[in-house]
Simulated assay, not measured.
Amino acid sequence: MKTYVKEAYNELLHKVTWPSWNSLQSSAILVMAASAIIALVVMAMDLGFETIMKAIYNILY
């Protein structure tokens, strides 16, 4: 177990390529924008489905 932790730490420190701060910020902004757009699309679909179902229920009952 001790060897595993040492090797994992060494790999994270010397072999992993970490993104720059600017790259990280750009990616975070892109993810937030995409999440907001997807949320709006899902909301529109939900409201549309709700409207259709209310119309169907009003016709049937």
Rank of each mutant, 00 (worst) to 15 (best):
M1V: 03
K2I: 12
K2L: 12
K2A: 14
T3D: 10
Y4L: 08
Y4E: 11
K6P: 08
A8K: 12
A8V: 11
A8T: 11
A8C: 04
A8Y: 08
Y9Q: 14
Y9F: 09
N10G: 00
N10H: 02
E11K: 15
L12K: 09
L13P: 00
H14T: 12
H14Y: 11
K15G: 10
V16H: 04
V16L: 05
T17Q: 10
T17C: 06
W18Q: 10
P19M: 08
P19Q: 09
W21C: 05
W21H: 11
W21K: 15
W21F: 12
W21D: 12
N22H: 05
S23K: 09
L24H: 02
L24K: 08
Q25G: 05
Q25N: 08
Q25F: 02
S26P: 01
S26D: 12
S27W: 10
S27M: 13
A28I: 01
A28W: 02
A28F: 01
I29D: 09
L30F: 14
M32P: 01
M32I: 09
A33Q: 12
A33R: 15
A34E: 06
S35M: 06
A36K: 10
I37S: 13
I37E: 06
I38P: 01
I38N: 01
A39F: 01
A39P: 00
L40K: 03
L40D: 03
L40V: 06
V41R: 02
V41D: 00
V42E: 02
V42W: 03
M43H: 05
M43S: 05
A44Q: 03
A44H: 04
M45Q: 08
M45L: 15
M45C: 07
D46E: 11
D46F: 04
D46I: 06
L47D: 03
G48E: 04
F49N: 08
F49A: 08
F49C: 01
F49G: 01
E50T: 06
I52Y: 07
I52R: 06
M53S: 09
A55P: 03
I56S: 00
I56G: 01
I56P: 01
Y57N: 10
N58T: 09
N58C: 06
I59L: 08
L60G: 01
L60M: 05
L60S: 05
Y61A: 10
Y61Q: 15
Y61G: 15
